[in-house]
Amino acid sequence: MAVHAEPRKAGLVGRLNGAHHRAALNIYLLIVVAHWAEHLVQAYQIWGLGMARPQARGVLGQYYPWLVTSEWLHYGYALLMLVGLFLLRPGFVGRARTWWTVSLALQFWHHIEHALLFLQAQLGTMFFGAAVPTSVVQLVLPRVELHLFYNSVVFVPMLIAMYLHLRPNAAELAATTCSCVAHSHRQPRRPATMPV
């Protein structure tokens, strides 16, 4: 199977997707998992402990309630997720890149939803005739459930992409340029020919 590989880029993006791809992915995964843990705790507070939704603020929100109520935090995280998915994408090849791109596309829409909320909060003007900041799909689904859904549909393909990235087939391995896969076994060969 032919696997497309992008030419390696120089600079920060090149290093992030080359020698430092594994470290960058690990840091990114830590942030994602910590964010997920917050949502799991929030879900437990609502459905397990029967707390009212405004009081179900996860872990950090118990100590810093403004974090949960601020659209800055939600938009900032959505933007961070989007930037991470975009910046780290060149390091993926083959099937892993396909799944990573699915996650990127879904997060792009999730980010649009948060941008709408953020815009309304900053302008003080609510859309859709609502009394509070409201996103498009929020017209149909409650906010907590909606963003749990968004986080899920972004998280699952991201995990699949990471797995396939760490367990590539032969063609994908040949096309891989980053540091993630068995780098101790893989010594990049230099061409004997002169560069063009």
């Binding site: 760490l166 367990r167 391995l173 891989t176 896969v181 068995a182 076994h185 893989r186 990049p188």
Partner: peptide, 10 residues
């Protein structure tokens, strides 16, 4: 990830 072996390249 824990039970499968990463591929050997090169």
């Amino acid at each position: 990830l824990l039970v499968t072996r990463p591929p050997r390249g090169d």
